[in-house]
């Protein structure tokens, strides 16, 4: 009884914190506070999702939502400082009505669902031995609904292509931005992150983990490298970037078409080699996700810098 009450108290506190932070985030007039509080929400949300039996989602949210989104938002805030500040927004009634209506409809839709059983967990568990993996979420991502994952990798690539089209990459931050403490930290963190990513990828077949979490971790390592670089320049390895970023889609398309000759269905992994095929596909996806996310933080096409770097941005 005591543990139940404590768990309930924890849940209520977490939920209340998240909601309070969320409303603070949208109400505040200070743009930096908006960004900073949003990073806070992402981290608290990751903890909340662990409470909701979703540790791999919590991993992904912490890396993507707090880490990469946070870095991007801060970079965008830095570049738009002073430009966008205008008169404070005064409208309350219209937005409040919109929010209330949305919440009411959502609540009405969710109310009958309390207490019902969750969906297909049992069916999937029964068929796990026909896939190459033994962790249900990985099985759904790479076997049952592989087309979704293929398209998702395409979304990443499409975002990268769109970003490259906008122009050359510019340094994330100006001036010298690292000191000895930061460099020492990166020296320790970088290999740890790479090992963590490899572990997440390998263990994704049997426990929480997988290509997306591993890729996001590697991308974070890439961003750290970027920050340590003077003037935040990215080497212009155009071919390497193109191939690495496309590796995931290429692997899924190639393997998927290849197995069509064997099993007669696109993306239908033959049982005998399913484990190996899934591992190859996931590794390619990890490389692709890491490259794409890191390059998205860079925010432009990496080009070779000509001339003096010192004074121009």
């Amino acid at each position: 009884m005591g543990i139940d009450a404590a768990a309930l108290l924890l849940d209520v506190t977490l939920a209340a914190t998240v909601v309070a932070l969320g409303w603070r985030c949208v109400i505040t007039a200070d743009r930096f506070e908006t960004v900073a509080v949003f990073i806070g929400i992402s981290l608290v949300m990751a903890i909340a999702w662990t409470r909701l039996e979703a540790p791999d989602l919590a991993l992904a949210e912490a890396a993507l939502g707090a880490g990469l989104n946070g870095a991007l938002l801060l970079a965008a805030w830095a570049e738009t400082r002073g430009i966008e500040d205008g008169p404070a927004e005064r409208r309350i009634a219209g937005p409040a009505l919109l929010a209330a209506t949305t919440m009411a409809v959502a609540g009405a839709g969710l109310a009958p669902l309390v207490g019902a059983e969750a969906g297909l967990a049992a069916e999937i568990a029964a068929r796990l031995d026909q896939t190459g993996v033994s962790y249900p979420v990985t099985a759904v991502l790479v076997d049952f609904r592989a087309l979704d994952t293929l398209l998702e990798l395409c979304v990443l690539l499409a975002a990268l292509a769109a970003t490259w089209q906008l122009g050359a990459a510019r340094p994330l931050l100006r001036g010298k931005l690292y000191g000895p403490v930061f460099v020492a930290y990166v020296r320790i963190a970088l290999p740890l992150l790479v090992v963590l990513a490899a572990a997440l990828l390998w263990r994704g077949a049997t426990s929480p983990g997988g290509a997306f979490q591993a890729g996001a971790t590697l991308a974070a390592a890439g961003v750290l490298l970027l920050l340590v670089n003077p003037a935040g320049r990215v080497p212009a390895l155009s071919w390497a970037y193109r191939i690495c970023a496309s590796l995931g889609v290429l692997a899924f398309l190639g393997l998927g078409t290849g197995v069509t000759a064997v099993t007669g269905r696109f993306l239908d992994w033959p049982l005998s080699h399913a484990g190996a095929l899934v591992l190859v596909a996931e590794t390619a996806a990890t490389v692709a996700i890491a490259t794409t996310l890191a390059l998205l933080v860079v925010g432009g096409r990496p080009v070779a810098q000509r001339g003096r770097v010192g004074k121009r941005h």
Binding site: E53, A54, A116, A118, G119, L120, V137, A139, V140
Partner: peptide, 11 residues
């Protein structure tokens, strides 16, 4: 996804 007594829904 976490409703009910069993495993969380993987889909």
């Amino acid at each position: 996804a976490a409703r009910g007594g069993g495993e969380a829904d993987p889909v």
